[in-house]
Design a protein around this nucleic acid. Sequence first.
DNA 1: GCGACCTCTGAGCCGGCTCTGAGCCGCACC
DNA 2: GGTGCGGCTCAGAGCCGGCTCAGAGGTCGC
Lengths: 243, 243
Amino acid sequence: MNTPSAVLTRADGTPVRVLVVDDEPDLAEVVTGALRYEGWDVRAAASADAAVREARAFRPDAVVLDIMLPDRDGLSVLRDLRAEQPHVCVLFLTARDAVEDRITGITAGGDDYVTKPFSLGELVARLRGLLRRAGMTRERATDSLLVVGDLELDEDAHEVTRGGDLIDLSPTEFQLLRCLMRHARQVLSKTQLLDLVWSYDFGGGAHVVELYISYLRKKIDSGRAPMIHTVRGAGYVLKPAPQ
Amino acid sequence: MNTPSAVLTRADGTPVRVLVVDDEPDLAEVVTGALRYEGWDVRAAASADAAVREARAFRPDAVVLDIMLPDRDGLSVLRDLRAEQPHVCVLFLTARDAVEDRITGITAGGDDYVTKPFSLGELVARLRGLLRRAGMTRERATDSLLVVGDLELDEDAHEVTRGGDLIDLSPTEFQLLRCLMRHARQVLSKTQLLDLVWSYDFGGGAHVVELYISYLRKKIDSGRAPMIHTVRGAGYVLKPAPQ
DNA sequence: GCGACCTCTGAGCCGGCTCTGAGCCGCACC
DNA sequence: GGTGCGGCTCAGAGCCGGCTCAGAGGTCGC
């Protein structure tokens, strides 16, 4: 789905390395798959000890780390990781109701976290942001900007403009648009959008996607040449409006 | 039946390898036949355990996997397959009403699924898409574009143009044209088209094919040199119009 | 505790798509 | 030239996919 040029790479041109640490096999599988699909080099570990061992051998650029592990606390794993690789980026996975004060200290150090249940698109975007800000990749700071035609989306500032006009979007609308923009000129099925934008435990059907597409159209396309197109029986595409 | 140049091959030039996993012998037979017709190297397995065993020996590039297997769940099979071959592509087969649960998130990982009853052309197209995007073949990313004369069909964007003019097609028209273009300069019988474009449980006769050919002609050939030709008693061919 | 916003469900509507049937045309073989 | 078959096209019925609206429930901030 990504064109090769869009793959985030390290300074030396090899794919970014990510270690996924989670003890739930299904979740680990889905996350691993999504990151691999980004073109990254991914390995998985199911416990804290395995994570430390794997990190030593694999030397990842980033670690996706579940805070609730069977054997040890995530924060102690962080200390172990940092002891050997001070510059590794860490993205924590945490339950919503879990204490946030422990985490807030972390984010000050440049790391980030997402709360369960999360969406895969969000996870990938956060990870990309971490890596980019850590200067670990070939992308420049300005590459937080997605551009399709006269439509611009700034992933860092969470800002969207069309033809220079600022457009206010809700969180879900923003994620949906980001997803469409990252795959511009390419039909995405409702299921794909559901899998990327909505959290993995979402029980509902693809109807929500239609609904949010209609919201987006109102905010982005209304009164202008449409950019969001329906492909009946297939899904939706975002394309620059022809002049 | 394909011209050799059209056969999708791995990087080393050997045919793509596909493992078909389904416990219904009839369906497995049909699918296996269709994939062999593409020039691919196909093997079959009738259970999850057999699939994992076969995959170990056969080392397929892609797996067509029925989600409803007698012995095990589809997602757990996926895990087992990925554990040994992290980059194998998986196309799930699933009943229409059984979608939604159990396989959420898989399209975000680059895998895909088709719902029963499906058409063989659809199955093949999805599989080709998976393999192409996984970079497992000689084709480049740009090869989502089919070109015959001044007629172009972009499988990713679901876009068709003739002489630069955008042509709007319904889902069935699109599939039919894709099928004709993939077998350009080659007579396809109405039965073949029926088998490829319509789902395998379609009850009607070949008359629909005539009907849809006439729709296509109106949209593609009208006012220009015709590209779709009738071969009386044999079927239809798509050829570049002579200048 | 209240209000604003966001998210999702359900229902209804509309349009277009798909397929059936019938009639017509023309080629081909008597 | 007649007849029959294969193919083409039109018209219409039914259905399905997608869009929108209205409203319930939840969350967050004040």
